[in-house]
Design a protein around this nucleic acid. Sequence first.
DNA 1: CGCTTATTGAAAATCATTTTCAATTATAAG
DNA 2: CTTATAATTGAAAATGATTTTCAATAAGCG
Lengths: 140, 140
Amino acid sequence: MTADSWLNQLQQGGYRLTEARRAVVDVVSACDHALTPVEVYDAARQVYPALGLVSVYRTLEKLDELGLVQRVHQEGGCNAYLPHADGHQHLIICEQCGRALYFSGDDLSGLFQKVGEQHHFSITGHWLQLSGLCAECQPE
Amino acid sequence: MTADSWLNQLQQGGYRLTEARRAVVDVVSACDHALTPVEVYDAARQVYPALGLVSVYRTLEKLDELGLVQRVHQEGGCNAYLPHADGHQHLIICEQCGRALYFSGDDLSGLFQKVGEQHHFSITGHWLQLSGLCAECQPE
DNA sequence: CGCTTATTGAAAATCATTTTCAATTATAAG
DNA sequence: CTTATAATTGAAAATGATTTTCAATAAGCG
Ligand SMILES: [Mn+2]
Ligand SMILES: [Mn+2]
Ligand SMILES: [Zn+2]
Ligand SMILES: [Zn+2]
């Protein structure tokens, strides 16, 4: 289970396992759409009502540090988190329901290198994100 | 000149031309790297010292509304603005000096469509941004 | 030039995030 | 199973960015 793996990695990282962290990890590790700190807070309190919003911020910070979550940028805001991509992957996000999904296998570095040369840039990274409608949100 | 065109469009949009707006437009329309509201404020005050930060926010909001600027997302933050791309273009940003540049001519919609199908998404948009080193920032 | 109303900057309010702090608790040692 | 220690907690205060309020100003129009 992802949650257990995350908890292990927190512990390996020298952090203690607490109720607050367990609650946050349970919510975020299992979620298929990006959540803001407050959304994590609301969801996690259903399991652990004593949770403080501060601990959500602090836990997300540590999960980010450990590479277990990543921040998601969208029109609506840039403070939502998802389980981190596995290797080099990019996001597709449903603009209706927010479902997020990673895909891989794009090989664009050649193209990007070429574009870079044309503009005298040496390209070191790229950021690609698709948006659309997931199966469930498409009209019949 | 871009600045004049922006001012015209503000006027066409029903907005009055004021010193505050002129100062903001002068700075943003001529800038080749993304600026935060405070950076715009500092730059524009050199020309118009009475400027208030609030007016920078308000002017950027209107320029965005008119499609004259666009928000730029980066690791460091997502509250910087650039003159809006001309049609369908994407950004290359120098990770050293922040110089920003648009490129076009990528035709990736075929690829994206295919990726979408594989995951039962109908793709409606994409977001692509390259980062690297501009000519001036490359070692020798 | 004068009228009307959008726009202004200052100050206050709001909102998200971070810091401070005393109380609690996870963990390791005994 | 204690006990000791230091990390972690949630509440409250502080901060920082952005928005709202408001009375004064000035753009645009006749
Ligand atoms: Mn890629
Ligand atoms: Mn494109
Ligand atoms: Zn959907
Ligand atoms: Zn550069």
